[in-house]
Design a protein around this nucleic acid. Structure first.
Lengths: 180, 180
DNA sequence: CTAGGCATGTAACTCGTTACATGATTGG
DNA sequence: CCAATCATGTAACGAGTTACATGCCTAG
């Protein structure tokens, strides 16, 4: 079992989902293409960690809904207390920042401004998700017994991270304004 | 050319480095094992983006110092203004957070506390790096014309990110304390 | 005396991305 | 009419990790 496998299982705890849905929902904490997700789900099914059910839809293509099994649940439960692997983040933008001295100030500023725009979109989406969780679940979402507690924590994590990045971009822009 | 290649080039702008050194210095914005770095440096040399020089040392093994060429510099310069790829971050800890509802409160708390300890080490290292840059370069480090400006921005970025994560962990812990 | 740092390299493998492949429906 | 969304899959490739391989020096 690899990390993506556990990520998929963790998404299925709350309720059954299709591969397509899983891809979207995963975005906040693990990025994967459908070409990686679909074969993995088949493999998880072979290992009896999930079951699948074909669901016909009207006006949309059929989909396969996956549900976590008892075995899947216990495998996931067992995995949680183990010390997690060191996180990796790979961000081309930061390579460009490292080499920022090679460009002129307008190019450098444009880089940061585009980044702010990019992260702002994420902020808006996170805020909306958090709001909708709070509206449907109320104060319960802040309790570990809530099925959405983990996801709620995650969205807060990412929202804070994104806001923090924007502040840093603005600080960098202010240094660029004072440069040379 | 892939992103790691640009990352290596960006590190060589300030001064020549060995593969071993590059691995350490890269840590702040791109993680790679030596088994990926050494062959890539050979490839970069074949493409004449870097040159290498064997340096004998006393009390230590010999090393290969790589320097960026004019061609390497122009390739890197040309790359900077292009829109960067979407950042990816993969963090097993966040998968565990997503599935946190499956564990008991003590296990959950231990997970966050270990994370705080892990990130605290990073914070200490970042702070020390920033301090040493400020001491050796003074206010100049805050100007784009400084050779360390990019790296200085980077360390601030990561320090802020790390501090932010610790705050979030504490908030999560406070919710766990109030739970059930 | 042994664990860890310095220093470089290759081979085998897994993980992740891009491209190929199909097809219906909806909104602009 | 064209682009996007929904929906699933495979094949080929590139990126990244683990393991294999070597060897000297230093500090506890």
């Amino acid at each position: 079992m690899n990390a993506l496998g556990y990520a998929l299982l963790s998404m299925l705890v709350r309720k059954p989902r299709s591969g397509y849905e899983l891809k979207q929902l995963l975005e906040v904490f693990w990025q994967a293409k459908h070409s990686q997700i679909y074969p993995l789900l088949t493999k998880l099914q072979q290992e009896e960690l999930v079951t699948s059910e074909l669901v016909g839809q009207c006006g949309k293509p059929d989909k396969k809904n996956y549900a976590i099994t008892e075995k899947g649940l216990s495998v996931l439960k067992e995995w949680i207390p183990h010390p997690p692997a060191i996180p990796v983040s790979r961000d081309e933008f930061l390579i460009k920042v490292n080499a920022i001295g090679l460009t002129d100030i307008p190019t450098a500023k444009a880089l940061f401004e585009e980044r702010i725009a990019f992260v702002n979109k994420k902020v808006a989406y996170r805020e909306q998700e958090i709001k909708s969780m709070e509206q449907t679940l109320g104060e319960d979402v802040k309790d570990i017994s809530s099925k959405s507690f983990g996801r709620y924590l995650l969205f807060h994590r990412k929202l804070r991270e994104n806001r923090e990045e924007i502040e840093w971009c603005r600080w960098a822009l202010s240094l660029l304004d004072r440069s040379r």
